[in-house]
């Protein structure tokens, strides 16, 4: 797939980029916690992919993209103080992008990529219902209400370690349940 020319074939480069766009976007959201900046970094990564992607070996392309994306994100992060958004806001914005004209496409079909998938939402909904109440409560407070673990521990009047354990157990259980649902 490597080209001797200075640039990738744009069509080939776009297809290659689109394959990882959704995962890259999620990664950039994790680093930046701001969807506008994540979109900016993703765009810059796409430009680099088209311009310089030919230099990456096929088997390391995903890693190459992650590295480029991380560099772009860190440049943005250093440039100015980032206004981080809550997961709730980011989820809303992602859902809104789904609802934009022509937005009902999977992340594989979209060069921008989407994070939220209807099937995943349904699976998580089912999995959350199977969690013990105290774990589900911590998940809600940390992810949805954006409270820190220290605040949660304070509110529940339990040690910080207990809250961390509940969260870790919940995550492991959810991953198991999600794996079961996927199978």
């Amino acid at each position: 797939m490597a080209h001797s020319e200075d640039q990738f074939d744009p069509v080939e480069g776009s297809a290659w980029f689109a394959e990882f766009a959704g995962e890259l976007r999620a990664f950039l959201l994790g680093v930046l916690r701001n969807d506008d900046l994540a979109g900016e970094a993703l765009q810059a990564t796409w430009v680099k992919a088209v311009e310089q992607g030919h230099s990456a070996r096929t088997e390391t392309r995903k890693g190459w993209l992650f590295r480029v994306a991380l560099n772009e994100a860190l440049v943005l992060k250093r440039r100015a103080k980032i206004q981080e958004k809550s997961f709730r806001e980011l989820a809303q914005n992602d859902a809104r992008r789904h609802e934009s004209p022509g937005g009902s496409v999977t992340r594989q079909e979209s060069p921008e990529g989407f994070v939220l998938q209807a099937e995943a939402i349904e699976q998580v909904r089912l999995a959350l219902n199977e969690l013990p109440a105290e774990q589900s409560y911590v998940v809600r407070m940390r992810i949805y209400e954006n409270k820190t673990f220290a605040v949660i521990a304070d509110e529940l009047k339990v040690p910080l370690g207990t809250v961390l354990t509940r969260m870790r157990l919940a995550m492991q259980k959810l991953q198991q349940l999600l794996g079961r649902f996927e199978n």
Partner: peptide, 27 residues
Amino acid sequence: LATDEGACEAVARVMEFNLTVAAVMAD
């Protein structure tokens, strides 16, 4: 993250998970 693709994937995976949970709870 700059040297570990698995860590990058973990960030993406966790972020997808968190956004999905937030979406479910909002819903």
